[in-house]
């Protein structure tokens, strides 16, 4: 792990341990490679009462390079049904791809995911879900998503 990556993540973890944004909790962060956080949408939304888990995988180039972020989809957690979230947990969000900036953080990504879910008007998968999931690379960072820039 890069020394800048380690220092940055140590700092982020320290801050998250002191105070997490509302609706966000650390599930596991035992090293500087993989973290899991639970996220819940606060207030009125289509996801009331549901808890999701986000997985972050960091490489040595973090935060210059974006982390690999997916919704966990296993026996405990399911990926939310959302037009930008594939059933394998891959997320089509520009800040995780071309719009990543090294000043963004784990907390910032979690909060963005919360607001992405909060603004959802219809529970549906992306229209190309089945085909994408069948052929998707293991890491969504190897997919070049096309982002529409309509604001919700």
């Amino acid at each position: 792990m890069g020394s800048i990556a380690t220092r940055r993540l140590a700092k982020e973890l320290r801050e998250l341990s002191l105070e997490c944004p509302t609706g966000i909790k650390i599930l596991s962060a035992n090293d500087f490679h993989t973290w899991r956080l639970s996220i819940e949408v606060m207030g009125d939304s289509l996801y009331q009462g549901q808890v999701f888990a986000l997985q972050f995988i960091f490489d040595a180039q973090y935060p210059i390079a974006s982390p690999e972020v997916t919704f966990v989809s296993d026996e405990h957690y399911k990926a939310p049904i959302h037009p930008h979230v594939y059933s394998n947990g891959h997320i089509c969000a520009s800040i995780l791809g071309t719009e990543w900036s090294p000043i963004l953080s784990v907390a910032a990504v979690c909060v963005t995911m919360q607001s992405m879910l909060a603004s959802c008007k219809k529970l549906e998968r992306p229209p190309d879900n089945d085909r994408y999931v069948r052929h998707a690379p293991k890491s969504p960072k190897n997919t070049r998503f096309v982002y529409d820039d309509d604001t919700v």
């Binding site: 037009p83 930008h84 089509c92 969000a93 520009s94 800040i95 719009e99 900036s101 000043i103 963004l104 910032a108 909060v111 963005t112 995911m113 607001s115 992405m116 603004s119 992306p126 229209p127 190309d128 085909r131 994408y132 998503f145 096309v146 982002y147 529409d148 820039d149 309509d150 604001t151 919700v152």
Partner: peptide, 19 residues
């Protein structure tokens, strides 16, 4: 095909960076 599909997709939002 996927490209076609994605291109024709409309109801999309790019999550706003909380900057």
């Amino acid at each position: 095909k996927l490209v076609q599909n994605v291109r024709s997709r409309k109801p999309k939002s790019s999550a706003a960076a909380p900057s």
